[in-house]
Each structure stands twice: as structure tokens, then as C-alpha cells.
Design a protein around this nucleic acid. Structure first.
Lengths: 243, 243
DNA sequence: GCGGTTCTTTGACCGGGATCAAGAGCATTT
DNA sequence: AAATGCTCTTGATCCCGGTCAAAGAACCGC
């Protein structure tokens, strides 16, 4: 059940193995020290909520180890899983940068270790080092691009196509040994969460999985998936260029 | 057919009436001069494409007058309208800030006047004035919040509810005299474009309009809409707090 | 005026997927 | 082992909304 990525626990920001993959890589040693002082580490077990939709923003979260899902719920109780965050990912920065409350909740999906950097510290760093802001600018802009992509996706593709697409993303991020055939890996999500990532119900998810298995696209057993041919998966959501 | 907002044509960035509503409001006079020099104005008639999905980013566009729609199309030819831009709005900055090609197309929906500020100029200004970057940071972050909101919306609400929501947004932006009852205003969009804003077909749009008219929510005739009671509209997409 | 687009509405049909309701596995408790 | 929860699957049903097709409406240029 242990997740991929950093399994050694860093003592501080200087020794943090994820640092080069975070926005903080642009900080000077002096600034890193500030970051280190403005930081608190906490551990979460699956199901624990790290921050909650509607809460006022108390800083930016840095995932050191584990897996965190970002959920957004509407007034009727329906919810979707917007993102999965892996070690090295920053969370909650959207609310901070927009100067808004959190618009989504973050919840540990696996045992996770998270650093909270308080608002004042991030604000100081942002004012002090323009490169940090530009870094975030790029990050948020890319996110916006993906979000808009997703809007189009959801509006125009079937549940099956969206799931096929999700599978390719999950393979890309969570499969070890992507080069060997057939690809075989462990899903980091329950059926329910898979469903809420593509905006459908667990029932439809289950049926879709069954159908894709019949069609020989993939073999599912519990959370294990075997994909004989990635190209077949791509065909599911890419237009048939030929034929 | 003339749109709201600035109808007087500014000669340059200094006299531009929209400036205070744009990101450029943080610029010094010296920087404004740079902006002025890096700018080219062009006029577009309805249907004209300002920039096209897949094109490499050639700068940031500033809408001076008119109405511009941002469209995103998938491989099958299905498309959705992501945004409507009004005078004072900036366009194409996402691609610029992300360092990517355009992921959507911008098309004039009404006769429009647009300034293009070239890449080099924006880059210089951004490097020179950190406040500009922070300004954009907030803007993009808010956009991201709305985009994620929309993802949830589309996944959980019916076509009718989504249209009711769209109507409230359009009233908010395009109705003159929002205080008087009943509200009466002109839609800035064709049926087809209304449909593509909520990710549905013109046929479904038409039927939804007919049904809402039967239910007394609103009266439609061509592009004119009369809404007797805004609260009824809100009820369509807000959960019934009291049965 | 009249034919030609293009935009909008209406009709008929049907299928994807939500919903409701059981069952099937599987793990934990007592 | 039986009982209690889980998550996941399966079945039956229904309806929203997409698709195809055609008829109106409105807006041209001529």
C-alpha cells in the first residue's frame, strides 16, 4: 500500500528530496531558511481531511509522502475528484493566490506526510523573490489549461472514453515499468473514486470496466490492472484517424 | 447591436478608458509607454478569428470594444464556448503565461476592436514590474477556480439547471437596469452559442427554452428575454433549501 | 418582390447512463 | 461460525438528452 516516491523522511526543507520538483527550487538559501521556519509537518491517515472546502486559506500545503485527493462537492452532496497529488506536489495554492477561501477539500487517500507553510511566509517569499511568482504563474496557467481541457472532455466524450483516458493518465503516473508489455499496475483508487474522477456513478464505472474487459482492452482484478496493448486504450478516446 | 462599455475609441494606452479595469493599471507611466510602443490595434467583424487553437502564442490581446468568444474544439469537431470577453478583458494570456500554444480560439461575436501586445513587451513588463505578475497570478487563479466550478457544475447539473445558471450570469453582465422588475434584456448570443456554453445541442437548447417558457420562468422572443422573477431562476439550480 | 442561405423550432426515435434495489465478496468483530 | 459491516457487481427500469430529419422563420443579395 506504500506509495511511490520519497520514502525517506526529510528533516527539513534543505534536505527535502522533493524540493527540486517543487516551486521552492527557485529559493535562495536565505529564503529556504525562512520557508523552513514558517513550516509545520503533519501526518494524515486515509480519510483524514487536510483542508476543507469553505475554510479560509491558512497557507500552502506541500506533500512530502503519500497520496492526496482534492474533492469538490456541490450543494446536493454530489462530489467529484478533481486532482490526485503526489509527493512533491503543492496543494491549496490556488485559494491562496486568488485570495479566496478553499473551493475544494483535500483528503489523504494513503498515509501521508504534509508540510503546511503559513500564509505570512508564502506572502513574504512571493514579495521577495519574483521568480517564485512567475513559477506559480506558469503552474496555475497550465492547471487552467488542463481544467478547460477537462471541461471539453467531459462535455463531448462518453463515460467509457473518459475512463480510458483516465487509465492512460494513471498508467503514466503510477505504473512502474511502463516500457514492458503487457503493462501491469495497481490502481491507487477505489471504484467509487475512479467514478468520481470522471464524473459518473460507481455503478456505471463497474459496468464500463466489465465491458472493457469483455472487449479485451484491459483485465481488472481488484485494484490490479493489466493492459495488453496501450494503443487499444488510446483508440478509445482518440478519433479514428484511419477507417 | 452595439455592446456595452467603451464606445469612444482611445488613441493610445494612456487615454484608454478600460485601463483601470485591466491588469495594466499597475504600470508606471514609463512602463505604459513601453506598452504603447509594443501594441497594435486591429478591428474584427463577427466571425473573424483573433487567434486560433494550436497557433503559437504571439502576445496578449486586449479587448477595447466589442464582444469576443473563446472556443475550444475537440478532434471530432465538437466545440464549446468557454468564455465571453467584454471591453477591458485581456485574452490569450493563459497560453502566454504557461509558455504554451493557444489551447482555444478567440472569435469576434460582435464588431470588435482589439489591441495585440507582443510577446517581448509583455515579457519585459512582467520582469520589470512584479506587481503585474501578482495581478495576473490572482486573475489566473480565480479563472482556475471558476473552471473547476464549471467542471463540477457540468457533471452534476441538468441542461436546464445549467442554462438557468448561465442566464443569471448573462443578466449580471449584460442587462441594463438589473434593479427593475421584470428584468428585460438582450442575449448577446445565438441559440447555437448558448447551447455550446453549457455543453449541449441547439435542439436541446430550444426545447429547454420552450419548457422554461411554459413554466413561466422567462419569456423569450428572438434574443430578447424577460425574466419576471429572478428568484425563480435561482431555484432552478440552487438546492431547495425549504422544500 | 423572390430564391437562397442560415438560424431556430418541432417531431420521432433511441440509447447512454442514472437510479433504485438486490445480491456477492471479503474483512472484521464477537 | 454467525453476524456485521464494507466495497463492488449485477439486474431492472426509466428518462434525459443526443441524433436524424424536416418544417418554419428570419435574413440576406439580387
Amino acid at each position: 500500500m506504500a506509495t511511490s516516491g520519497a520514502n525517506s523522511h526529510s528533516l527539513n526543507c534543505f534536505t527535502c528530496q522533493n524540493r527540486d520538483r517543487t516551486e521552492w527550487c527557485v529559493l535562495s538559501d536565505k529564503e529556504l531558511e525562512l520557508l523552513e521556519r514558517g513550516r509545520v509537518t503533519r501526518e494524515y491517515t486515509p480519510g483524514d481531511v487536510i483542508f476543507h472546502e469553505g475554510d479560509s486559506c491558512n497557507g500552502v500545503y506541500c506533500l512530502e509522502a503519500g497520496l492526496v485527493g482534492v474533492r469538490k462537492t456541490n450543494a446536493d452532496g454530489n462530489s467529484i475528484l478533481l486532482h490526485l497529488n503526489n509527493p512533491g506536489d503543492t496543494m491549496g495554492y490556488r485559494a491562496f493566490l486568488a485570495g479566496e477561501d478553499y473551493h475544494a477539500s483535500a483528503e489523504a487517500l494513503e498515509p501521508s506526510k504534509v508540510c503546511l507553510i503559513d500564509v505570512a511566509t508564502v506572502r513574504t517569499l512571493l514579495a521577495q523573490n519574483p521568480a517564485l511568482g512567475l513559477r506559480y504563474l506558469k503552474r496555475v496557467s497550465r492547471n487552467l489549461g488542463s481544467a478547460e481541457e477537462k471541461i471539453l472532455h467531459n462535455a463531448t466524450l462518453s463515460v467509457r472514453a473518459r475512463f480510458a483516458h483516465l487509465l492512460t493518465v494513471l498508467v503514466d503516473r503510477y505504473a512502474t515499468g511502463k516500457e514492458q508489455r503487457p503493462i501491469e499496475f495497481e490502481l491507487p483508487l477505489s471504484r467509487h473514486d475512479l467514478a468520481s474522477m470522471i464524473g459518473t456513478t460507481p455503478e456505471s464505472m463497474s459496468r464500463t470496466i466489465a465491458k472493457m474487459e469483455q472487449d479485451g482492452i484491459a483485465v481488472f482484478s481488484g485494484r490490479k490492472v493489466i493492459i495488453p496493448e496501450m494503443n487499444d486504450l488510446f483508440q478509445e478516446f482518440e478519433p479514428e484517424h484511419f477507417v
